[in-house]
Each structure stands twice: as C-alpha cells, then as structure tokens.
Write a protein that binds this DNA or RNA. Structure first.
Lengths: 321, 321
DNA sequence: GTAGTGTATGTAAGCGTTTACCTATAAATA
DNA sequence: TATTTATAGGTAAACGCTTACATACACTAC
C-alpha cells in the first residue's frame, strides 16, 4: 500500500504538505501542489480512510430526530422496539465520536447539526428532503420511494420469502398471508416476498388485506377461511398475528396443531404470547445507521443506498415450522 | 471516549494485557482477565474499530469468483459493465489491504481464501451456500432470496419508481412497462417499482412480459400498442430498450416526440444510441463489496444485509422526461 | 545445580493520518 | 531601516490499537 510518506518522498516534500494539499488546508504554493498531485497520480495513492478517521479528533454532533408519537411510546411497554434501536445508537455513537442529541422534530425547532438520524416513518417527505439537502441524513426503519436518501430497513421481502419457502419445504399445504394495507411500503414489501415464494413453487397465493388499527380481525379471518382452511397464516406484523392468535383460540382452533401463525417484528408481547415471528434486528440496525452516518460525515460523496437487514426467524410455540 | 489506556489504568495492568483479553491472544491469568473485564464493564469500554483496523497489518486474501460467461464477456465490448466493477474492486482492495485474486469458479478448483466476492448470478445457490458456510462471502450484482448472504445490488425497485413518478409529474399520460421474465428477481424488482408508482398515483399499469433473448420484440410491442399507444415505455433493461428503439424507428415512430423510451443499466451502447436510462452504479457497487467484505473479515459477526444502491437517472435523447 | 519450558505481563514500535506549533522567507508597512 | 504580516513548509505529537520482543517467575528434567 502506498502511503502519504511515499508520496511525500516522491514529491520531495514533507508529509504535512501532502496532507495539506489533500485537505486543502493551510498554505501550499501552486508549484508544490502540482508536484504532490503528480506524485499521487504516479504512485496511485489512495488515502487510508481508517487512518484518517483515527487521526481526526473531530467530534460530529448528530440529531436523533423522533416524532411525538414515538417519544410517547418510549415510556410505555410498546416502546421497546424503539428503545432498543435508540440505545444501540447511543452506544455505538461513542465509538465513532458522535455527540448524539435526541430531538422531537414536531415540537422543537431542529438545530443545525452535522448529521441526522431520522427514526421511524412519521416525518413528512418534504421535510426529509429539505433536511437532506443541507445535511447528511440517514433514515432508520424508514424508506421513501424515489427519494434516494440513505435508509436502513428490515428486509421484509426476504424475511417473508424465507418462512414461506421454509414452510413449503416442510410440507405445509395451504399457506395464507394476512397483511396490512398495501399502500404502505413495509407491508407491500413483505407481501411481495410471500407472492414470490408461492409463485416460485407453483402455489396459489391466498391473501387478505386488513387494517389492524381500524378493522376487525374476525371479518378478515372469516373471509380468509371461506375457501380452504390454511394450515399456516403468515401475518404482516406481530400485532396482526396476535389478534389472529386470540381470535382463533376463541374459535377453538388449536394452535399450532390446526393452524400455525407467524408474525413479523418480534415485539415484546410476541415472546410473551409464544408467537413465532421474524425478528427485526433492532440494535444491529441502530448501529448500522450510526456507521453509515459516520461514513457520510467523513469521506462524503459515496452514493446513497438502502440497506435491507435480513430478519431472523424465531420459532416459538405458535407454529410447527 | 474511554480508551484501552483507561481500562488498563483502572485494572492496574498494561494496555498490552487489556488487548490480550480483548483478542483472546497470548497468556492472561484468570484473575487478571477478571479484573480487566470488570474495568471494561465499569467504564463502558468499547474498542475503536478504526484504531483496530489501522493497527492490524493483517492482509487478507480474497477470491473474486467469476463465471466463464463473464470471463469471456470481459474481453468484448459488452463486458464493460463487469470491467468497471472489477477494476473498482481491484482499486479499492488496496486501501483495505486485500490481496485480490481473480478466479473462474467453473473451471478452477476454488482455493481456500479468507473471503470471496462472487460477481454476477451464475453461481448455483448450493455452491454459494456451502462457500458462505466456511468463509466470508459477498454477492455482487446478485441476490438469492431467503439465503441471507450479504449482497450488493442495484435498486431496481427504487430506480423504476423514480422515473415513473418523474414521468407522471411531468405530465405523461400513458406509461407502459416492457419487462423481462418476472421469474428473475431483478426484473420483478423493477416491475414492482413500476406498479407501486402507478398505483400510488391512481394510474392503470400497462405491462408486457417478453424474453429479450428468445422472443421477438415486435410481437410484444404490437400487443403493448394494441389498446392505447403509450407516450413512455420504461424497459427492464437497456437491451430491451434498444431493441424497442430500433423497432419503433422501423415503424416510423418519432423518438422522443411520439414515444419516449427509457432503459436500465447504462451499458455502453446506451450512450451510443442516445438512450435515456437508469445507470447502475457499477464502481460504487464494486467498492462497497470490498468495504463490506472487509468489515466481515474484521469484526465479523455483524448481521448480514442486502445493500440496494440507488440507480441514477441519465437523461438522453430517447425521452422527454 | 543448570538448563529448558510454560506461563504471565510489560515495553515500545509501529499502523497512516491530521494538526498544533515552529521556522523561514518575501512583501508590506511604519 | 526596522517591524509586521502573509505565505510556505517542516517537525513531531497525537489518535487507539496490535504485537514482536524482552523480562520474570515457577516448574520440570537431567
């Protein structure tokens, strides 16, 4: 590996000078700059990002932007999902010398900071867009189509594909998917994974949409059971799965002997109710958000991407698969 | 930030000893180890990955696994796609101290190396799976559903969503999607992006599947034009788009006045034929593959993910959008 | 008793950068 | 002419870690 020292030697200057032209800091004569530039090119020099990161003391400050909804959730049992993510962020931020400040973007003026991590899907597209224009931004557990902002999400497509395929190869016959409104990316993503797996193995998809916040699960389930009783219901998330579980038990259906039920997210009540589920890697995602933001903050200019962290299947008592 | 030195001081030992318990290397008495562990916990110590990476000289060797098909492509004009990716890999590998060796996995025995980057989609699922079991593996420009191997792909969903949305907001009325076989993930991904955007804006999707390698584009286009003539055709890839372009011109259709055509990939002939397209960020993806493999090779154990690099829209003469 | 061996720990030299601080000119100002 | 000031570039100390090497002690083997 060619180092800054090699370049300095080649150009006949000190490493400080090379560093200066590298960073555009301090005084360097045009003549010297040219010599250095040529030496770099000649040797094919590429600065070590690692060394640079280590040497720079620069402590960035980053805002952790959270909505009122999530803020309030945080102090309840349901907030565990975000609590885990946020504490992962705070822990890993230290490694990268990031000063994290938690902010409610709905009630407070957003102060100018080096970068932002936006948690969850409550911020408007326009606000994200304008924030991303002037700062480094990473979306955590959120993604907006066509916006091209760095995002970290759980891979719903792959997760649901995985259990569906697993179920098929374990001999399940009638695999249904009970999903939330497809206008939401997350639900659609999971839905697509289900469809892809079923299609791949020549199975007929059996799906039912239902809004877990405004509709009754009973109606949806009745419709779902009308033609053939499924032996496995894969639900869009744990809330839907738990409602399903409860209703089926009311009906006297044996779980998992008659019907297996699988959720998505792994919220705390999933474990309590013995629900098999696809676990969203919350702390891993938090850590990755920090890592990615750090990258952006340092050697900027890398092309943005969406990072889909694979979900992990957690088998519990609600399913035979 | 609490450093190894702080821990050493707290535990009353040297930093070398702390490093030893950190890495499980060399001799450390149980008693000392306990002291160190306690000091770490007390101070909330987290080792700096940056410093660690810098200090480790360890040069890993990695295999760049390529199929015969791609190997042969490499020396032709069509191979530019992979040539760019591969040279990006070779360049960035140096930064990370990776010794890259290019291998044809179909003709040569795969030698034992620290990690592998598998380029393209020609390797069998089973072989990838077994390779990933004993080594660190990154898939480049490939992704296998349900396998959960680290992958770098171009975000077809987002890319096609982006142009579709752009076209809708630019006043296009009849936007069609001419796509390759949906059994392939890449085509399906792009297709889903198109569907999502059209649905979002209440437009009726107009789609036509066609196998660019075995079927004739004329038939597909005739079917596509039967009901309403589209004013924009978004194609699954550049090859399809170029065939479309040619056929339309044969028919005397004016491009882009009558019909706009957009492709995907940005292969060299796209530029030559003035085709608007979604550019796959080849060198960025190559670089990211290296970076990700390096992460895996070092502080292993991070949870795998699929990285979807956003495509960039490149407007050329074939479209008004 | 002397040498050899296994165990335990410390010392210090890197790894490739950045940057505070210092020195040396030449030009500008008094 | 003497003093300031802007410009140019060098020196060396960090940054937090790993690791080769040195040291020290307690055994065992002859």
């Amino acid at each position: 590996m060619v180092s800054i020292e090699d370049v300095a030697k080649e150009a006949g200057v000190s490493i400080a000078t090379v560093s200066r032209v590298l960073n555009g800091s301090g005084y360097v004569s045009e003549e010297t700059e040219l010599k250095v530039l040529q030496a770099m090119k000649k040797l094919g020099y590429r600065p070590s990002l690692t060394a640079r990161a280590l040497a720079k003391k620069k402590a960035f400050n980053v805002g952790l932007l959270i909505s009122t909804r999530i803020f309030e959730l945080l102090s309840t049992e349901l907030g565990e999902f975000y609590r885990i993510m946020i504490s992962a962020i705070e822990n890993s931020a230290e490694i990268y010398r990031l000063d994290v400040r938690i902010l409610n973007f709905e009630t407070e003026e957003i102060p100018k900071m080096d970068g932002y991590i936006i948690v969850g899907s409550d911020m408007e597209k326009e606000q994200i867009e304008s924030l991303a224009k002037s700062s480094k931004v990473v979306l955590l557990d959120h993604y907006i189509e066509g916006l091209r902002v760095d995002s970290i999400v759980s891979d719903g497509y792959d997760g649901v594909y995985f259990v569906t395929e697993l179920a098929i190869s374990s001999g399940f016959n009638t695999i249904a998917h009970l999903h939330g409104p497809l206008k939401y990316f997350g639900f659609r993503d999971r839905y697509n994974g289900y469809i892809a797996a079923m299609t791949k193995y020549g199975r007929l998809p059996i799906t039912m949409e239902y809004d877990e916040l405004h509709e009754d699960v009973e109606t949806a389930l009745r419709k779902l059971f009308r033609d053939r009783k499924p032996d496995l219901i894969i639900c869009s998330n744990d809330v839907i799965a738990l409602q399903t579980l409860k209703k089926l038990q009311e009906w006297g259906v044996r779980i998992p002997e008659d019907v297996s039920v699988v959720g998505f997210d792994d919220i705390p009540s999933a474990a309590k109710n013995n629900l098999s589920t696809l676990r969203v890697q919350k702390s891993e995602m938090g850590l990755n958000a920090v890592k990615r933001l750090f990258e952006l903050l340092n050697h900027q200019s890398t092309h943005p991407y969406k990072q889909c962290v694979y979900a992990t299947y957690v088998k519990r008592g609600s399913s035979l698969v």
